[in-house]
């Protein structure tokens, strides 16, 4: 459905952030994209959704294709209309609008005039938003704002949803709830999802396939069950070593231990 082929992104005409990044998102699946801070995950999403331009970023090489059509030169509004919707990092709700107005803003590109059945659909996933529908979004809790951000995406009925760190700054219980809902949305609405995360364990739990990126390119990919077995993933992303054993500080020499995939 979505294919990134060897793309390169440069900010301010100087800073090379993505250095030949490729990935594929098949229709109807959840694909995870893991990596540490600054690896280029968010940049990848912005390259897909056309949000690089306002930040002076540019795709200078490679191609991004959605349903067979090249989209890396289209602007954000056009890309949303094609069915790609990005839920931005840090929730970014419209603070001075009520919860319901936020949802309606999410449905801006819809052709139908009456969006009340879509509102009900969103409220069925997030009953708490229904209770708070007339409250100013800026005063909602962090978890509710994240629900609102995902609900806003649902309003656009996208074919592909790009989620940028939905777990950011949320309590572990809430994160579990949100991930459960993401899985449900994928199954019930048939929405394809590209999930960018730092929480490797949860992501490998919901994803059908996952990529790990470092330093602007993909370093490892595979099915979650295979990745869980990979020694490097276990150590650097899941924080595990030998099962059941605690690691002594003497053995923790991250700075010396070379990752096998870098060389």
């Amino acid at each position: 459905m979505l294919t990134l082929n060897n793309i390169e992104v440069i900010y301010n005409e100087v800073i090379l952030v993505l250095k030949g990044m490729s990935l594929q998102v098949p229709e109807g699946k959840i694909v995870g994209l893991l990596g540490s801070n600054g690896a280029g995950k968010s940049t990848t999403l912005k390259a897909i959704s056309g949000l690089l331009k306002p930040e002076d970023g540019e795709v200078t090489d490679g191609s991004i294709k959605f349903m067979g059509e090249a989209i890396h030169h289209k602007d954000a509004a056009e890309i949303v209309r094609m069915g790609i919707f990005q839920v931005m990092e840090g929730r970014r709700v419209f603070e001075h609008l009520t919860a319901e107005e936020n949802l309606l803003a999410g449905g801006y590109t819809r052709r139908e005039r009456d969006l009340s059945s879509d509102l009900e659909m969103v409220y069925s996933y997030f009953p708490r938003l229904k209770e708070r529908r007339h409250q100013t979004a800026g005063y909602l809790s962090g978890g509710e704002q994240q629900m609102l951000a995902i609900g806003r995406a649902l309003m656009a009925q996208p074919r592909l949803m790009l989620l940028d760190e939905p777990s950011l700054g949320l309590a572990p219980m809430l994160v579990l709830e949100i991930f459960g809902i993401i899985k449900r949305i994928n199954q019930e609405q048939g929405t394809t999802i590209l999930l960018v995360e730092q929480n490797a364990n949860l992501t490998l739990g919901v994803a059908d396939y996952a990529y790990i990126m470092e330093n602007g390119r993909i370093v490892l990919e595979g099915y979650p069950e295979d990745l869980r077995q990979n020694a490097d993933v276990r150590e650097f992303y899941l924080g595990l070593t030998e099962v059941g054993q605690r690691k002594s500080y003497r053995d923790v020499k991250h700075y010396k231990r070379r990752k096998r995939w870098l060389s």
Partner: peptide
């Protein structure tokens, strides 16, 4: 009003 609040977020929903 959405644009006034957060231009980039508004852009991300096709406004």
């Amino acid at each position: 009003r959405a644009v006034a609040d957060d231009q980039q977020a508004a852009l991300s929903m096709g406004i």
